[in-house]
Amino acid sequence: MPENTELRYTAEHEWVLVEGSVATIGITAYAAAQLGDIVYLDLPDAGTEVAGGSIVGEIESTKSVGELFAPVDGTVVEKNEAVESSPELVNSDPLGEGWLLKVEFTELPELLSFDEYSALIGG
């Protein structure tokens, strides 16, 4: 499955787009396909402090519940309210309109490259 090579990835099947000190976070197309139709998202509000590696939200599909991990330490500056009201955006456009959070970070941890993530999912 193609993933955007501009992005960085985590082993928890999330993508990270870094612009200055803000990381935009979503789940990968692979993760969205594995979950199936997403019907509910629980995302942290703007202002929430998050710790890298901790669970900060939930992604529910018809069949299962996935956890959203914060890939970085920082503060949520925006959550995607559009996906909360239209969770299907995560399935239809996981790398675009289906983004989940913007987090302002101080330090960027080591993340996976496109090639490393592709190898992880057997692509």
Binding site: G36, D37, K63, E88, N91
Partner: peptide, 20 residues
């Protein structure tokens, strides 16, 4: 189709969207 193991069988869990 995507497949799932069901009682030892590889069966289609969905073709595109289970909601659809």
């Amino acid at each position: 189709a995507s497949f799932t193991d069901f009682a030892g069988w590889q069966m289609p869990v969905r073709y595109s969207s289970d909601l659809a």
